[in-house]
């Protein structure tokens, strides 16, 4: 169970504090899939980082009783001057997993071959995406945070991501941020819409989507 109680977030700017959202209440039970809809800049990624604990809320309380992944967005969470292997090792150490047990698995998914031992900055966008996904699958979580997963990669990559995430790990909880209504509709049990600094939750994804469309211009 993950619970957000009256969570608010604001950032310091040159002109005072900028409120991203306030009074957010959200519960995610084991195995539950929750979608988050919202325009660019509505605060979706901020909310995901707060759920994951990478950022702390300005107000309110976050309780985590399951292990939560970092936001899987493919580009972040890596050091680009290091090799793919060094990054894998670092992340494994942080999460207390033996890196050497995971190399084969990561190689199989990322298909990087010898490039695993080259700095990440030399990788193409596709290679980075494959490595990012492979490393995040190397560590098991009860809840995965997914930020715009459908935005990168070709059809084959997306199919393989789908297999790993929604078939093999279909029993896990997931929080998905996406502009793609079909993706959210297909995978989520419920969805929330972030507009005007408020999160409105819907038990029905279609309802959430029509609310989102109606408020999209706000």
């Amino acid at each position: 169970m993950i619970a957000l109680e009256d969570v608010g977030k604001s950032y310091a700017t040159r002109y005072g504090r900028h409120l991203v959202f306030k009074d957010v209440n959200l519960q995610i039970a084991k195995g539950e899939k929750v979608g988050i809809l919202g325009r660019n800049g509505a605060g979706k990624s901020t909310l995901v980082r707060i759920i994951g604990g990478a950022e702390s809320p300005t107000r309110g309380k976050v309780t985590r009783n399951m292990t939560v992944s970092w936001p899987l967005a493919f580009s972040g969470a890596f050091q680009h001057s290091l090799t793919g292997y060094d990054n894998l090792r670092f992340i494994c150490r942080v999460y207390d997993v033996d890196p050497d047990e995971k190399v084969d698995e990561v190689q199989a998914f990322s298909e990087l071959g010898k490039f695993l031992w080259e700095p990440i900055r030399t990788y193409s966008a596709g290679m980075r995406a494959r490595l990012g996904f492979a490393v995040s699958m190397a560590i098991e979580f009860d809840c995965f945070l997914i930020d715009e997963i459908t935005a990168v990669g070709d059809a084959r990559f997306r199919d393989r991501c789908h297999e790993e995430l929604h078939v093999k790990r279909g029993d896990r909880a997931m929080i998905m941020v996406s502009h793609d209504a079909n993706y959210v509709r297909e995978h989520c049990h419920k969805a929330g819409v972030l507009t005007g600094g408020q999160l409105t939750m819907f038990d029905d994804v279609d309802e959430a989507y029509s609310f989102y469309m109606a408020h999209a211009s706000e």
Partner: peptide
């Protein structure tokens, strides 16, 4: 549950174990 140590603050000892691990990983990196 080990990786939850720091955020839930359930046990100081476990949080310290997590922190030691993280610092060591950072030193190596």
């Amino acid at each position: 549950m080990a990786i939850e140590g720091r955020s839930s603050g359930r046990s100081l000892l476990r949080a310290w174990a997590v922190q030691q691990r993280v610092i060591w990983a950072l030193v190596r990196r």
